[in-house]
Every structure is written in structure tokens, then in C-alpha cells.
């Protein structure tokens, strides 16, 4: 029983990190049809910037805020300066973001070195919780809680606000939304920045567990793409379900068959896609 509870909770905490990445990826793809490889860079830079900011000032929350805002701004600039100019040229946009992934990886390597760095845990969350004879890290419980709250906020934003309705309408027919007088280019920039900020938050919150190191950007963006593919492109609910599935499968897979780690991720993806090619909640 303990084995099941601990691995489920571990799976959920990984799922929340994946969700923070997948939510932005799926929104950006659904609205702008951009396969954003640079999402891994936003995650990595978010984690690294938080590490530096926390070292300088000592505050976890301060570090998190600095990292998230910095990456949102960087994301907005990248979208305006580069991606907006390649409007509707999907192949070029994907290649551009792949190039950014490599460039940022090099910059990060020069700046923060090749050794893995952990984002320091906030002191308040360093203890453990005890229940049913299990001792479980408080930080992971906090992470799961954060993920659930953010997932709810995103859902409420998309389904319950007019701005959210504009984003969904943009996924249906972006040109027609412009024809109604809505500044869609601005909505694109905003959603891209939001996605970047969520990825940075994933780096900050996941940093104490997974650490930041050269290659973490690619690893995590690959998993996030599996999540988005399984969940269905363009759907936040799909991103959430996909994250749960991939997070749990990855954890139990690693516990049972540690030699097969990537295999255990891709098998469920292939099964889902074989049964439902659009993914669990897919719209395209």
C-alpha cells in the first residue's frame, strides 16, 4: 500500500510540472499553430534565473516572481520580434524555435556551467508530512497543490471569461476574430507570454526536485510534447489528463522496469493515438 501511495504522489508531482509546460504548449499550438521547441528553454531559464535570484536575495517567492516575469517578457519579445513576422509559415516558425533552443542551451551553459543545480527549497516547506505511517516530503505536497490551483485558474480563465472565449474563438477561426474588431496579434503575444511564464514556473517549482542541467530543456520539452499529443492539441483539459497519465506511467514504469524508462512513456502514447488519433480531448 505504501508503495502505491508514494508512487502515486510522486507521479502526481511530476504530472504538475509537466502540466505547467504542456498548458502553454497546447495553447500556443491551438491558437498560433506553432510547435514551440523553445518551451524547454523557458523552463530551463526560469529555473536558472530563480537559482541566481534566490542566491542573491535568499527569497524563494522573490526568485520565482523574478524568473516568471523575466521569461514572460522574453517570450513576448521573441513572439513579436521573430514569430509574428513568420505568421502562418509553420515550418519556419518550428525551425526558429528549435534554433532558439540550441542558442539558449549554449548561453545557459556558459552562464551557469555544466553541473546540475537545484533550485533551493523554501525553508518553510523543507519538512515532511506524516500520514498512515508514511513520511512524505512537504514540498511535493505543496507542488501538487500549486499545480491543481493553477490548472483550475487556467480552466476558469478559458471557459468563464470573455478573454478566454476570444482565445477559444481564435482556435476555431482566427481570421474571423480579427473581422470582429479584436486585436488578435496582441492576443497572440499575450498567450505566448502566458505560456512562457507557465513554463518558467514549471522550472522554478520543479527545480528543487529535478534540478537544472544542460539537456534538461530538451528532456522536459520532449515529455511535454508527449503529454500534449496524448491529451489532444489545443485542449487544457487534455493537457491536464495527459500530464496525469504521463506522470503516473513514468513513475510506476520507473519503479517496475527501470531499464525501460522511455519505452514506458511512449507505449501509452502509441496506444492512445491508435485508439483516438486526435488525443484524449483533441480538437484537431
Amino acid at each position: 500500500m505504501t508503495f502505491w501511495i508514494i508512487n502515486t504522489l510522486n507521479g502526481l508531482s511530476l504530472a504538475m510540472i509537466l502540466f505547467l509546460l504542456a498548458a502553454g504548449l497546447t495553447l500556443i499550438f491551438g491558437l498560433m499553430h506553432i510547435i514551440n521547441m523553445a518551451h524547454g528553454s523557458f523552463y530551463l531559464l526560469g529555473g536558472y534565473i530563480a537559482i541566481t535570484a534566490i542566491r542573491l536575495t535568499g527569497g524563494f517567492i522573490f526568485g520565482a516572481i523574478v524568473a516568471v516575469i523575466a521569461i514572460a517578457v522574453i517570450g513576448a519579445i521573441i513572439q513579436r520580434l521573430f514569430l509574428a513576422r513568420l505568421y502562418k509559415q509553420e515550418m519556419r516558425q518550428a525551425l526558429l524555435t528549435l534554433g532558439l533552443l540550441f542558442i539558449v542551451a549554449d548561453i545557459a551553459f556558459f552562464t551557469w556551467g555544466g553541473d546540475p543545480l537545484l533550485v533551493p527549497q523554501p525553508p518553510l516547506l523543507q519538512g515532511a508530512v506524516h500520514f498512515w505511517g508514511i513520511v512524505y516530503p512537504l514540498y511535493r505536497v505543496f507542488l501538487i497543490g500549486c499545480g491543481l490551483v493553477i490548472a483550475f485558474c487556467l480552466w476558469a480563465f478559458l471557459e468563464r471569461t470573455t478573454l478566454g472565449a476570444i482565445v477559444r474563438a481564435g482556435m476555431d477561426d482566427e481570421e474571423m476574430v480579427r473581422g470582429l474588431g479584436i486585436n488578435v496579434p496582441l492576443v497572440f503575444t499575450g498567450i505566448f507570454a502566458l505560456g512562457a511564464a507557465l513554463a518558467a514556473l514549471g522550472g522554478v517549482l520543479g527545480g528543487p526536485l529535478l534540478g537544472m542541467f544542460p539537456g534538461a530543456d530538451f528532456e522536459v520539452v520532449l515529455l511535454a510534447f508527449v503529454v500534449v499529443t496524448v491529451g489532444g492539441l489545443g485542449s487544457i483539459r487534455g493537457a491536464f489528463l495527459g500530464s496525469l497519465l504521463v506522470g503516473l506511467v513514468d513513475n510506476f514504469g520507473n519503479a517496475w522496469f527501470p531499464q525501460l524508462s522511455l519505452f514506458t512513456i511512449f507505449v501509452p502514447m502509441v496506444i492512445v493515438l491508435a485508439l483516438k488519433p486526435t488525443g484524449l480531448m483533441g480538437r484537431v
Binding site: A165, A169, D172, D173, M176, L180, G181, I182
Partner: peptide, 13 residues
Amino acid sequence: FPSLSVRENLEIA
């Protein structure tokens, strides 16, 4: 916009 309700179609306009 098929993924919006009738009201939302009007509200965003």
C-alpha cells in the same frame, strides 16, 4: 465559433 456558446459568440463581438 462552434466551440463557443451562442452568448459567447455575441459577447466577444
